[in-house]
């Protein structure tokens, strides 16, 4: 088992594994979230995102593997690291009979590093930042789901953070709220905060993420910069021609993979082949090329391709 402690990474794991009984929730994942990144942690419901986040935060002990937050191993030095980490784990949870404000004050009271003289000011600033100041004195139980979600984000912003771990931050928010959370993530990232944001809704986070990790059934099936992850799906070359059989033969000879024959077109995955070489080879072989396109898959198609299309939750 390798150990982790790369100071350049805000979140890091090696072979992180969790079994609940015979159920494998997370199957040995190697996360790498560079400092300053906005890391989109994507995957369908039940793919192991939340369990991974719980392990990263020291709430759940891994069955195997190691992880580190801000270069500090978890759980050994989780206490030190967590002071610099704001988190939202699996939805908001607060005391129903306390007001939103009183709930934040309680969390602040629990923090040994928090300065009691600035509690009120910091609580108000955090509530203001998520647009909840007007409802601050209402009881939490009277909050709508969107307000609860905002309060949980405010709790993560009570202190200046080096890392924010936001598990499904847009759950229950209306489109306006979703947009606000997105712009909040953007402004925090501009400030230098690393953000790890999980979602099962790709469209919500795609625009703000510099890096992506995609989970499927407990495994990290793709990870890297947004560009790299898009690339792993492979671009597709498509030739429209009156002589598809001939074109297919040329493509196969060139080493294009997954060549499929249509009635008046041919598809294939060209890999590293330069498009101009393919066109030249086709023309040289006497294939009448009516149209030639190379397209990169949309991230959503890639997401579906990587995580499966079914509606059912993976067991």
């Amino acid at each position: 088992m390798s150990t982790v402690a790369d100071p350049g990474l805000a979140v890091e794991s090696a072979g992180l594994t969790k079994r609940f009984g015979s159920q494998l929730a997370v199957g040995g994942i190697d996360l790498a979230v560079p400092r300053g990144a906005v890391y989109g942690f994507l995957g369908p419901n039940g793919s192991g995102k939340t369990t991974t986040i719980r392990m990263l935060l020291g709430l759940v002990r891994p069955t195997a593997g190691t992880s580190a937050l801000l270069g500090l191993p978890v759980p050994a030095r989780a206490g030190e690291a967590l002071h610099r980490v704001g988190s939202l784990v699996e939805g908001p949870a607060f005391h129903p009979y306390l007001s939103g404000r009183a709930n934040l004050v309680r969390l602040d009271a629990a923090d040994l590093l928090a300065d009691p003289r600035t509690t009120s000011q910091r609580v108000d600033a955090a509530l203001d930042r998520v647009g909840l100041l007007a409802a601050a004195r209402k009881r939490y139980r009277a909050y709508s789901l969107g307000m609860r979600q905002r309060l949980a984000i405010a709790a993560a912003l009570l202190q200046p953070r080096d890392l924010l771990v936001l598990d499904e931050p847009t759950n229950g928010l209306d489109p306006q709220g979703t947009r606000e959370v997105r712009s909040l993530i953007g402004s925090l990232a501009a400030d230098g905060t690393t953000v790890l944001v999980s979602s099962h809704l790709l469209a919500e986070v795609e625009q703000v993420c510099s890096h992506l990790g995609i989970m499927r059934e407990g495994h990290l099936v793709a990870q890297g910069t947004a560009g790299e992850v898009r690339g792993t799906g492979g671009s597709t070359a498509r030739v429209r021609t009156e002589q598809p059989e001939e074109a297919a033969r040329v493509l196969v000879e060139l080493g294009v993979e997954k060549v499929t024959l249509g009635s008046s077109s041919v598809h294939g995955v060209p890999g590293d082949l330069a498009p101009e070489k393919i066109v030249a080879a086709l023309v040289y072989a006497g294939v009448g090329v009516q149209e030639f396109t190379v397209s990169t898959p949309r991230l959503e198609d890639l997401f579906v391709q990587l995580t499966g299309e079914g509606f059912d939750v993976s067991g």
Binding site: G58, L59, G79, L82, G91, A93, F94, H95, A110, D111
Partner: peptide
């Protein structure tokens, strides 16, 4: 039961 335990522990509270 209400989930506040996870938020206390990630404050962090030892």
């Amino acid at each position: 039961n209400i989930g506040t335990l996870r938020y206390l522990l990630t404050v962090p509270v030892d």
